[in-house]
């Protein structure tokens, strides 16, 4: 099985889905790059190179560069999706939803329900997410909790190249609007990825490691942070069960509860600010549905309630890391009622 980066896995998926279904089109700023310029018309392939080569293969009718007009092109994607196309929109940074919030959260999310099921909105919104490369407060947020708030949206946060390909395939073939969040720090991660297409179902958590002492639920890159912490913890005799929900909406509450029933302890790792986020969501769910399983209070490892700082040392301080996860795990394991 060939080794592919996260970036290549997404590019491959887009190529295969566009080959498979002529209704799939791409929309976004600089997804080709070079449109209207004298030089290379396939200059960028997105600011992070994820869609490189696609305009050369599929042409400008299916790979549509846009002016900087998120509201217009996101709205256009909704209209196109309701009329037989299956747009994949590149929002670039997930923070930019702030300038097309109405299109994503009022239109895409609600049209199917509001219109009594007359029109589905089969569109995928790709956006990068997360801190770690000094892109500061307006380009580094992890907004999966914001999107997960809205019924009608499905929210995917893949953790590896294999997962990214299967989940993006599912997203593009899904009949609902899907938010697909690509963690910046994972773009160069490599993994064996099949050349063939495959779907990973939404709403089924992945159990990355089995262990009987503590359940760690983590999302996106935080899964790797948790995995690193758990390897060190295993040497201390603490076995962690690591659960990657894959999709924060729908959320596989069953797998989380089953695990907590076994371990009796829960740590949630989420690279977001601490209020109304994924961690609080899971925490509340387990407190309500699985209180009897708990041997210790739930702990959440999140970023602090601050905007994301620019200075690299402060940014490192901002993000959850293995040491913080390890400390939280040891705290719940050592808890004496």
């Amino acid at each position: 099985m060939p080794l592919k980066t996260f970036r290549q896995a997404i590019n491959d998926t887009l190529v295969q889905e566009m080959q498979r279904d002529v209704r799939v089109i791409l929309i976004g700023e600089d997804i080709a790059g070079g449109t209207g310029c004298e030089g290379d018309g396939d200059a960028w392939g997105g600011p992070l190179g994820v869609t490189k080569g696609l305009i050369s293969e599929f042409g400008p009718d299916r790979v549509l560069d846009t002016p900087i007009s998120e509201a217009a092109f996101m709205g256009a994607a909704v209209g196109a999706a309701m009329n037989g196309l299956r747009p994949v929109v590149d929002l670039m940074f997930n923070d930019f939803v702030s300038v097309c919030f109405d299109q994503v959260c009022n239109q895409a999310a609600k049209c199917h329900y509001m219109y009594g099921g007359q029109n589905s909105v089969p569109m995928t919104i790709r956006a990068n997410t997360g801190a770690g490369i000094s892109t500061a407060a307006q380009h580094s947020q992890s907004l999966h909790p914001v999107f997960s708030f809205f019924p009608g949206l499905k929210v995917v946060v893949p953790t590896s190249p294999y997962e990214a390909k299967g989940l993006l395939t599912t997203a593009i073939r899904d009949d609902d609007p899907v938010i697909f969040l690509e963690t910046k720090l994972l773009y160069d991660m490599e993994e064996d990825v099949p050349d063939e297409s495959y779907e990973i179902p939404f709403g089924e958590a992945n159990i990355l490691r089995e262990g009987g002492d503590v359940t760690i639920v983590a999302v996106g890159r935080m899964v790797h942070v948790a995995t690193e912490a758990s390897a060190a913890l295993a040497r201390k005799g603490i076995e962690c069960e690591i659960i990657d929900p894959r999709t924060t909406s729908p959320l596989d509450t069953e797998t989380i509860l089953e695990s907590v029933e076994e371990t009796g302890r829960l740590v949630i790792v989420d690279e977001t600010t601490p209020r109304c986020n994924f961690a609080t969501d899971v925490s509340a769910m387990v407190a309500q549905e699985g209180f009897a399983f708990l041997k210790a209070p739930i702990r959440m490892v999140t970023a602090p309630h601050t905007p994301i700082p620019f200075a690299p040392n402060l940014e490192q301080l901002y993000m959850p890391d293995p040491a913080k996860v390890s400390a939280a795990v040891q705290q719940v394991v050592g808890y004496q009622g």
């Binding site: 294999y162 299967g166 099949p194 063939e196 297409s197 495959y198 779907e199 990973i200 992945n206 159990i207 089995e210």
Partner: peptide
């Protein structure tokens, strides 16, 4: 166990 199930799922998921 988990690995066996994951391997089979990976095979079964392919188009």
């Amino acid at each position: 166990n988990r690995d066996m199930i994951n391997d089979v799922l990976k095979a079964k998921r392919l188009d």
